[in-house]
């Protein structure tokens, strides 16, 4: 019927993929450890957005659960690494 939405989905996918590329470059190049953790956190959020955009494009509700899981694991991982940088251990006695 109308092809506006598929093109918008392609455009958003392209934008978020380029954004993931930027975050990957910073992840590999980052001079300090905190740069890498920040880039990893951004990568997770962008990956979640890619999955959500794919869900819009295919009109399926399954992608929602994957996006929720990616957000959950990204938060846990990035917070654990930031805590490690701050204290030298993750769970303190």
């Amino acid at each position: 019927m109308n092809h506006v939405l598929p093109w918008a989905v392609y455009f958003a996918l392209m934008c978020v993929s380029v954004a993931m590329g930027c975050a990957t470059i910073r992840l590999l190049r980052g001079p300090q450890a905190q740069d890498r953790v920040l880039a990893l956190d951004t990568l997770y959020i962008n990956g979640m957005l890619v999955v959500l955009t794919l869900g819009i494009g295919f009109g399926s509700g399954i992608y929602f659960d994957i996006a929720l899981l990616i957000a959950l694991f990204g938060f846990v991982g990035a917070t654990a690494m930031a805590k490690f940088l701050l204290r030298g251990e993750v769970i303190e006695p």
Binding site: F11, M14, V18, A19, M20, T42, N46, L49
Partner: peptide
């Protein structure tokens, strides 16, 4: 979608 994609791109 277009606005969100552009904002994410600029942020990264």
């Amino acid at each position: 979608l277009v606005i969100g994609g552009l904002l994410t791109l600029v942020g990264s």
